[in-house]
């Protein structure tokens, strides 16, 4: 079994990382930010695509409906 213990005495100690905190947390922070953008960018793109398509479908259906009414009027 792996024996593991928390390497720091306190939360403040953990954040400070004995003087290297700025470097470590900046590196992790920016990485998390970029990973979140990478994962959500395609999801947003997909959602936008589907909503545009839905609108186009609706517009097309409306066109077809209004054509039908026109046909009825001319007859």
């Amino acid at each position: 079994m792996i024996s593991m213990s928390f390497q720091f005495d306190s939360m403040a100690d953990f954040l400070a990382m004995s003087g290297h905190g700025v470097y470590v947390w900046t590196a992790y922070g920016i990485t998390v930010l970029v990973l979140v953008v990478l994962a959500f960018r395609p999801l947003l793109k997909q959602r936008r695509f589907l909503s545009i398509q839905r609108e186009q479908n609706r517009a097309q259906n409306n066109d077809r409906d209004s054509n039908r009414i026109d046909d009825g009027a001319t007859k």
């Binding site: 593991m4 213990s5 928390f6 390497q7 720091f8 953990f14 990382m17 004995s18 003087g19 290297h20 905190g21 470097y23 470590v24 590196a27 992790y28 990485t31 990973l35």
Partner: peptide, 29 residues
Amino acid sequence: LLVLGSIWGLGFAPQDARQGNSYRIIFIH
């Protein structure tokens, strides 16, 4: 895996003898 590895690497992995805590960037780098 990423959350587990980060907590492990940041809080529980031992300090590096020469680089201290700055080496913890290795787990993402």
